[in-house]
Design a protein around this nucleic acid. Structure first.
Lengths: 212, 212
DNA sequence: GTCTATATGGCGATAGAC
DNA sequence: GTCTATCGCCATATAGAC
């Protein structure tokens, strides 16, 4: 290979290199919590235990770091949704399974829903830029899936895109507004009990939305 | 009165005073589009045709201006919802009417949903500060309304707060993500045709969510 | 890979003239 | 009520030592 990934460090100073992945994780949380404009590189550097300038060794600009964070999130979501849609069974079983998978995913990745909602409302420039086609593919795929379910009679006939947007909104809003909703529910929405209640409720809600 | 609201201007310079309401409208759009952190007072001042420093005659701080904008939006939403819930008719008719009212409102006020979603995900400090009680009252009121509908058998029995959050998410996400959704729908979602399609679809969706 | 030091610019906010 | 001028701070980003 051309670039030699030197395994052993030189005897010099760089004794505790911080992984690029760790930086992305820290940045993901920061961007999710305060948005792109509201997050400074100092915040991220502090959380990582390095100086702000050191970030520029790993990423050329703040926007590149942000885009890389969002690319990861969108890729995960995309493959999750695509896989679930391709399973066996009738459309009702498939939408149930998809609902459960998405709730599980957002429950285990508290930053994801917030980042996606921020992008959806136009806070960052990823979905309107590099992530545009992937986002379109996911949404179009959802609409096609729902329409197919209507064609075979498993789902009630209705505008598929309207249905798709509503379902996405139900999924995202619950987790993205975690602070407000935790206050409303009287308990942290990421607690196991609320999470399982949400899963059961949402599966039933989305099913009646599609079928009823 | 003590402060004399001099109707006739002195012959001096201030020939075109900009109304406080106009400033709030401009600020509302700016905050909705770029968020609190992403909006600079220069932007607002430019849009208003005055200098940045002149804003401080009307508002003490950037946060005060922002809070005033959000206070207006939340007050409107609150009274809209409270009034609709108190109407006559069974619960199905009432939830239908409420759905229509909300779609109409967001359709006529493109900034509102975005501002509310931004606050819900913790971008600004209004809902977690001055607007906390109002927000709680609205959400609690919604849950109580839905629970009452279940008690009399108009609505299917289910966790009322889970239902409330889902409905709010459906309403907000469609309008707040106007750019992405317009691209997805292939037409501006604020166009009359999409707006009426959304109203019809969402009314049916929310009804089957509550009843089905 | 991380550091210090620095360049450059925009931000919120204030003072005081008109 | 709006202006010009300015202050102090923090932002992104760069240069170069170690």
């Amino acid at each position: 290979m051309v670039t030699k990934r030197t395994r052993k460090r030189k005897p010099g100073r760089p004794s505790k290199p911080i992984g690029r992945e760790k930086l992305l994780t820290i940045a993901r949380t920061a961007f999710a919590e305060h948005g792109y404009a509201g997050t400074s590189l100092s915040t991220i550097a502090d959380a990582a235990g390095i100086r702000k300038a050191s970030l520029y060794y790993h990423f050329d600009t703040k926007e590149e770091l942000y885009f890389e964070v969002l690319s990861g999130v969108l890729t995960n979501m995309s493959s999750l949704i695509m896989n679930a849609q391709l399973g066996e069974g009738n459309f009702v079983d498939r939408i149930d399974r998809l609902s459960e998978l998405v709730v599980d995913y957002f429950g285990e990745h508290p930053d994801a829903s917030r980042l996606l909602v921020r992008e959806a409302i136009g806070d960052g420039d990823f979905l309107s830029g590099p992530g545009k086609e992937v986002a379109q593919r996911v949404l179009d795929g959802a609409a096609i899936f729902l329409e197919a379910g209507m064609k075979v009679g498993d789902f009630r006939k209705q505008p598929p895109k309207q249905l798709a947007i509503s379902i996405v909104g139900m999924h995202l809003f619950f987790f993205a507004s975690s602070g407000m909703n935790s206050q409303f529910m009287g308990e942290d929405i990421f607690s196991p009990s609320i999470l399982s209640e949400r899963k059961e409720s949402l599966v039933a809600q989305i099913r009646s939305l599609c079928v009823g």
